[in-house]
Design a protein around this nucleic acid. Sequence first.
DNA 1: GTCTATACGGTGATAGAC
DNA 2: GTCTATCACCGTATAGAC
Lengths: 195, 195
Amino acid sequence: MEDQISRRRSGPDTRAAIQRVALELFTEKGYEATSLREIADELGIQKPSLYYHFKGKEDILRALFDERGDEAEQLLQWIGEQPQTPELVGAAVLRWVQSFSAEKLRGIRFLSANPLIGRTFEGRTNDRIGSTLNQLVDRLTGLLPDQSPSKVLQLRMALLSINAAVDAATQTTFTDDEVLAAANTVAIALIDALL
Amino acid sequence: MEDQISRRRSGPDTRAAIQRVALELFTEKGYEATSLREIADELGIQKPSLYYHFKGKEDILRALFDERGDEAEQLLQWIGEQPQTPELVGAAVLRWVQSFSAEKLRGIRFLSANPLIGRTFEGRTNDRIGSTLNQLVDRLTGLLPDQSPSKVLQLRMALLSINAAVDAATQTTFTDDEVLAAANTVAIALIDALL
DNA sequence: GTCTATACGGTGATAGAC
DNA sequence: GTCTATCACCGTATAGAC
């Protein structure tokens, strides 16, 4: 329960509110196209107030990335503990896809709207976005009976089926659950074709 | 064969050269993050010279869009001429996917790097990017035995398998042919799961 | 066609009062 | 913590000489 003391503007935790609004706008209009003034306006505060909570625009972005979970690391560890068979590929991909809840779709949508941000960011932050995906692919590739480029790329696509589903559903009225279900179905179909 | 008369700077057709460089940079760094100065520098000309060939930055973008082919319209027409059976769905999707050559992947990569550009542009130009895809989906949806949201979304994903393949292959060393082959394989797998 | 010079607005960012 | 005032800079865009 939150206390009821009078609060105007952004609320009890301004920092979290900034992140929330920033994620929204970055997803809607893109990181570059979103100005700090717009973020401040949306919160009903002045632009310089943002600088009390964050060092700058890029720092807001970094905070967004740092907030991210580390499902990929956990999955990597889990894979290591399993018997290393070709069947593990399908199991791991499904585990990955199903680790995304409706809540986590917001992160995917942000990344989908800003595909270049991750690359620019690489090295500067704990880059755990793309590089762990690559580790994941590498580990699973080793288990594939056929490791031809075509198959490896299909494996990547299977892992990215959530992203593909989100992309396919943009500007439509599909619900989050429908998106997740489609991603799951597609992942299964791709794994079947893979083995 | 091109003639050998001496040409400095941007070459015989500056307008085309500007478009070429712009497409490159927009794809690499994103439309918003690319400045006209960078485009001019790359061509070895001065920034205001661009304004002789284009009305402004957005006009360069528009020219890029207008250059695009109209495979979607052609496909729509072709669909109308065929017997309207469920099997037509798979045939149409494959036709669509296979209409993309290595050459056309550049356009896909640009759109992949700038996913929000199309939406912002909508209405202002001959928006033939996303809206014809929707028409395509609508037409094909009518042929599906099961028209549940999940199936419709899977149909969208099948049509977007080229985009998904391009996304999955970014920052890797896959060749264009491998990307196209993977898109084709994935499209087939998704159609199989669809019918 | 391409240049130099410049206008003008908006951006991220800082200083310092309250 | 949030504000007002202000900064330097860089963006797109224009005028006019060559």
